[in-house]
Amino acid sequence: MGKKIRELGVTIGKLPVGRKNCITDVDGVQVGHVTLDFPIDEEGTYACTGVTAVLPHSGNLFKKKVTAASYVINGFGKTTGLVQVNELGVIESPIMLTNTFGVPAVTQGTLEYMLERNPEIGISTGTINLVVGECNDSYLNSIRHCPVTPGHAIEAIQNATEEVAKEGAVGAGKGMVCFGYKGGIGSSSRIVSVEDENLSYTIGCLVLSNFGEKYEFQADRYNSSKQQEPTTVKPTDGSIIIVLATDAPLSSRQLQRVIKRCGIGLGRTGSHFSHGSGDIVIGFTTAHKISHVSQSVVEIRTQLREDHPIMNKLFTAAAEATEEAIINSMSQAVTTAGRNNHTVHSYNFEN
């Protein structure tokens, strides 16, 4: 595993980062991975993929939901659950990431995990909405063989911790390619403050990067002048899944306004949201824990004022954290070999 871009002397943006510079700087948020890296047969068929789980908190997410929203920058994607997320404004399950053809297995595994912990689902209460995002890792992974199983989804959830998330070619990021070089999982965070009221909030971002061609990459932004390994990767347009977490008290509508700004960070790296790219943002705030069952007719939640300067700081934080998370997904990745001896080199940011 390589180094975070800040460890290499590159500062992105102006806002301060959290202690871990990771999505887990948002209190209670957990990340877990399962990485698959093995030959399936002697004919070049290879599992180079995985599963990543993001848990908004460590409790029972079905019983204590969080306020959420999603935003589709470009809709070439095969996610599950986002229609209901935007309709009701909540997330009630772990957010799962994997490869395109792994979505059914990961959905099944996540369902099994949640059903075991909530025996009332589908009997004395309604069903559950599961959220799964994907990118196409078929250059390195023998995607048609569907090596991801429901058990891998369960294992990723069980592996989730509040520690600094592993980044680069791990979990769902194992087989991903970014700008023709190795991509995958990246994370970063920002702190925004209201000095005169002694308030501060955290924005944390985790990405699954799998987009772009070499010529698009804005390498000069990251002081990268070192000669790179050649890349012959001719990817499809690719995709990125961005997960944004915060502890700021936002409504679902306000949260969607914030997560739209993740597209700014994505664009700064060089992406132009290609025709066949699934560029999707999933966001949540831990400020509200919404009970599945309540006898109350009315519920009261706090939220930030729309016209307070803190909103602009949150917009900035979303853009900065997304950009840095993407670059961390590359700087932390290692050269990776996969199916049919395909190899994707890591990008060397060290000058």
Rank of each mutant, 00 (worst) to 15 (best):
M1S: 06
M1G: 13
K4W: 07
I5C: 07
V10N: 04
I12M: 05
G13T: 06
L15S: 10
V17W: 01
T24W: 11
V26D: 01
D37E: 09
E42R: 02
T45G: 04
V51F: 09
A53P: 08
H57P: 02
G59N: 04
A68D: 01
Y71F: 15
N74D: 05
G75R: 07
K78H: 05
N86I: 11
V90T: 03
E92Y: 03
S93D: 05
T98H: 07
G102K: 12
V103W: 07
Y113V: 09
M114Q: 11
R117K: 14
N118H: 12
I121A: 05
G126S: 07
C135K: 01
C135M: 08
N136Q: 06
D137Q: 02
N141T: 10
R144T: 10
C146A: 12
P147N: 08
V148F: 07
G151P: 01
A153C: 02
I154V: 14
A156K: 04
I157R: 03
Q158P: 00
E162H: 08
V164I: 13
K166D: 04
G168L: 14
A169E: 05
G171M: 06
G175E: 02
I185D: 09
S187T: 15
S188C: 13
S188P: 05
I191W: 09
N198W: 05
Y201H: 08
Y201F: 15
T202F: 06
T202W: 04
T202L: 06
C205T: 15
L206M: 13
L206N: 11
L208Y: 10
S209E: 10
D220Y: 15
Y222T: 06
Y222S: 09
S224F: 03
S225M: 09
S225C: 09
E229P: 06
P230I: 14
P235H: 05
G238R: 00
G238I: 12
L250Q: 07
L250R: 07
S252P: 10
S252C: 11
S271Y: 03
H275S: 11
H275M: 13
D279H: 05
G283S: 13
F284S: 04
T286M: 11
H292S: 14
S294V: 13
V298I: 15
I300N: 06
T302L: 11
Q303T: 08
Q303S: 12
D307G: 01
H308E: 10
P309V: 12
I310Q: 02
I310A: 03
N312V: 14
K313T: 05
A321K: 01
E323S: 09
A325I: 08
A325N: 11
A325E: 10
A325S: 13
I326P: 07
S329I: 14
S331H: 02
T335S: 13
R339Q: 14
N341V: 11
T343S: 08
Y347Q: 01
